[in-house]
């Protein structure tokens, strides 16, 4: 009896280990995560518009249909990334995601405070190489550190009414992201 209970206790403990390790391993093993879904649709280091979600198809679940969205799937291996997103009439935001869909930074047009949102995205190692004076003097230069070499930048522009969707899409069409080669 006691022996059986011991086996059961061992089973429960081991079950806990299995549970925790599968939860922690899942983001690495997921084949249908946002990044994987976008690999087929998007080239690397270029802003491309995402198809609007409809009842028949959606690139990712729970997309906000009131927004026009564009994505830049980045790879910082070749240098830092320069992102320029013009601000639309209503509301524009830029959100940065790691390879595993963790939103590590987000900024909206009001916080950026200008007609366009301009950002430099780099790895911590690339940031360390930026000359310090340049970092300080360029006060309007916003540098974001990416925790992962690859990831996603999603630019979203709100269409407050369906009639303004074309304007929101138009604003996003002028967004760019490009690699700045290492000097």
């Amino acid at each position: 009896m006691i022996r059986a209970l011991m086996w059961l206790l061992a089973a429960i403990l081991l079950g806990g280990v299995v549970h925790l390790s599968t939860v922690l391993a899942l983001p690495q093993a997921a084949k249908e995560d946002a990044y994987s879904r976008l690999v087929a649709l998007t080239p690397v280091n270029r802003v491309v518009p995402l198809p609007a979600p409809t009842a028949d198809s959606t690139v990712m679940p729970f997309m906000d249909p009131a927004f026009a969205a564009a994505v830049c799937r980045y790879d910082l291996t070749g240098g830092s990334l320069k992102l320029i997103a013009p601000v639309s009439q209503a509301y524009t935001s830029v959100t940065f995601y790691t390879r595993n869909s963790v939103a590590y930074y987000a900024i909206n047009d009001r916080a950026a405070g200008r007609r366009s949102i301009e950002l430099d995205l780099m790895t911590p190692a690339q940031h360390a190489q930026v000359p310090e004076e340049e970092d300080v003097t360029a006060a309007d230069r916003l540098i974001i550190e990416s925790p992962s070499t690859r990831g996603l930048v999603v630019v979203r522009a709100l269409a407050p009414e369906p009639g303004l969707m074309a304007a929101a899409r138009g604003a996003l069409a002028r967004a760019t992201c490009s690699i700045q080669p290492v000097q």
Binding site: A34, T95, N100, Y105, I107, N108
Partner: peptide, 29 residues
């Protein structure tokens, strides 16, 4: 869930569903 402080359960959940969470600097869902 919209920040780097996301817990492992939410992390696994979004990796499985394929959604991109709303970033805290953007808004809240």
């Amino acid at each position: 869930t919209g920040s780097v402080d996301i817990d492992p359960y939410a992390r696994a959940s979004i990796a499985r569903s394929g959604e991109l969470p709303t970033g805290v600097g953007d808004g809240i869902s």
